[in-house]
């Protein structure tokens, strides 16, 4: 097994079916909320990152739909829904 498989490569093992729209959004005006910095730490898929302006951005590709970001950020910061029926991650082992 490779010494340190990158996160992108790990996510690449999974089956994803694309949804039309992102199912999680940072609510407009909330990009600088400090709770989003916590999402960077807790997200198992590493989808949250800080941009040079110091605000947090979310890239939804590879989302495992676990809900951890919603738990640390709350619904004031995130508009959070499951992806549409039949889309998103499809675990083959689980």
């Amino acid at each position: 097994m490779s010494q340190a498989m990158g996160l992108k490569a790990k996510l690449g093992l999974n089956v994803f079916i694309a949804d039309q729209d992102p199912h999680i959004r940072i609510k407009p005006g909330q990009e600088a909320d400090p709770r989003l910095k916590k999402a960077i730490i807790v997200c198992p898929a590493g989808l949250y990152s800080e941009n040079p302006e110091g605000t947090v951005v979310l890239s939804i590709d590879g989302c495992l739909e676990c809900g951890t970001c919603l738990l640390v950020c709350g619904s004031e910061v995130l508009e959070w829904n499951y992806p549409g029926g039949g889309t998103g991650v499809q675990y083959r082992f689980g």
């Binding site: 097994m1 093992l13 999974n14 676990c66 083959r92 082992f93 689980g94």
Partner: peptide, 14 residues
């Protein structure tokens, strides 16, 4: 214990 294995899936759940 996992030496020689092939990663097949990466998952997370609350």
């Amino acid at each position: 214990l996992i030496q020689g294995g092939e990663a097949a899936e990466y998952s997370a759940h609350v």
